[in-house]
Amino acid sequence: MEEYEKNIVPHIEAIYDNFTPLEKTIADFFIHNEEKTDLSSKNVSKHLFVSEASLSRFAKKCGYKGYREFIFCYEQGGSTASRRPASDHIKMVLSDYQELLNKSYSLMDEDQIERIAEIISMKKRIYVYGKGSSGLAAMEMKLRFMRIGVTIEAITDVDIMKMNSVLLDSECAAIGISVSGRTEAVINSLKSAKKCGAAVILMTSHVEKRFQNFCDEIMLFAVKANLEEGKAISPQFPILVMVDMLYSRMLRMDYFRRETLHEYTLEVLEKDS
């Protein structure tokens, strides 16, 4: 089983907003430092043009008694408190996620991501179908892509999937999400979408020959035994990995406009919260 090492950088990042501007300068140094240099308080204070007292205050704000304890844990990969090693079941969960990431990389097809991103960009309306955990992934996809100007709707109710077919035409794209590839409500909706002239994309972990009859693109995501039951890890995880790859590609298309839209939607949400 792969060994996992802990370090204190995530802890520094977690409390970053609580730092003063001077402390953020110190935090940035330790977050991004990759060189094995002399990290004594005298050398770091000289390098950052800060006082040694500032380093001590920073270390205490991070939860340490002083800079000496902080730098010891930083170099050793420790944390603010002595913690017992992760148990086997925790390591197993992390290993499962790592396995799915490795499989996702193996399945990733950049040319296909380019084609699907082009479809989403060109079509006037996008509908994403999914049930259960796949439906939750469809909702997340809707929220992400709306922020960059895509007219997209997530449909998770079977009856609405059926009724939605009357809205489809050649200016639409229908994306179905099914881990098993056997969610008939989703599969049937994609068949109807194809008959209406819409572009059809299926995101699944299992390929069947029949899919080629009505799908323009079949995007594979990683799977692991018992993933669909959601026993140890979320079945949404490998789906969202692929969604993020699509999102990243979409963001690079007409980057300035999409980035502006993204920032604007975040500002609107912050005003209303």
Rank of each mutant, 00 (worst) to 15 (best):
E229S: 14
R182T: 11
A53F: 06
V93D: 14
K61G: 07
C196L: 15
M108N: 12
N213P: 01
A138F: 14
I26K: 01
D17K: 15
N33S: 12
L269I: 11
I31C: 05
D88A: 11
K24Q: 15
S205Q: 09
M253H: 00
I177W: 00
I187G: 10
I31D: 08
A199C: 13
G181I: 05
I152F: 06
D159N: 03
R68D: 15
R147P: 03
C172A: 07
K191V: 01
I120R: 00
M245R: 02
H206Q: 12
A138G: 11
T265I: 11
T80D: 10
L100Q: 04
N213W: 01
F58E: 04
D38L: 01
D157E: 03
V50G: 13
A199I: 06
S273P: 00
E13P: 00
M122I: 08
A225I: 05
I12S: 08
I160F: 05
E3R: 08
A137W: 10
S178I: 11
K103G: 02
S51A: 14
F29V: 00
R144K: 14
Q76N: 07
Q212E: 10
A138T: 05
I148E: 10
H262Q: 03
S180M: 10
H206D: 03
M245T: 02
G66E: 09
S51L: 09
S170T: 02
S82N: 11
S189D: 05
E228H: 02
I175T: 04
F145D: 01
A14T: 09
V200A: 10
E267F: 10
V50W: 09
K195D: 05
N226D: 15
M163I: 00
T265N: 01
Q212P: 00
I177C: 07
L227P: 03
S180D: 03
P10T: 02
K124N: 12
S178P: 04
S273D: 01
D157P: 05
T265E: 07
T151N: 11
I177H: 04
Y16S: 06
K195C: 06
I31L: 02
A138M: 12
H89I: 03
S248N: 13
E229R: 12
S54L: 08
L100K: 12
I113S: 07
P21K: 11
K191C: 05
L100F: 09
E267D: 13
L101E: 08
N188R: 15
C172V: 02
N102K: 12
N43C: 03
M245C: 01
G66Y: 03
V93H: 09
E184I: 14
F256R: 07
R144F: 02
K231G: 00
V243G: 08
N213Y: 04
R257H: 13
Y247C: 10
G132K: 09
R258N: 02
L202A: 01
G66F: 07
K103M: 09
E270R: 15
S54W: 02
G63R: 11
E114V: 06
E35Y: 06
E3I: 14
S133N: 04
I12C: 00
E184S: 14
A193P: 10
F214Q: 13
I116G: 01
G78S: 04
D96E: 12
C215H: 11
D244C: 11
E118M: 14
F70T: 10
L266G: 02
F214K: 08
C215K: 04
N213I: 00
K36M: 13
R125T: 06
D28S: 12
E118A: 13
A53I: 04
V128C: 14
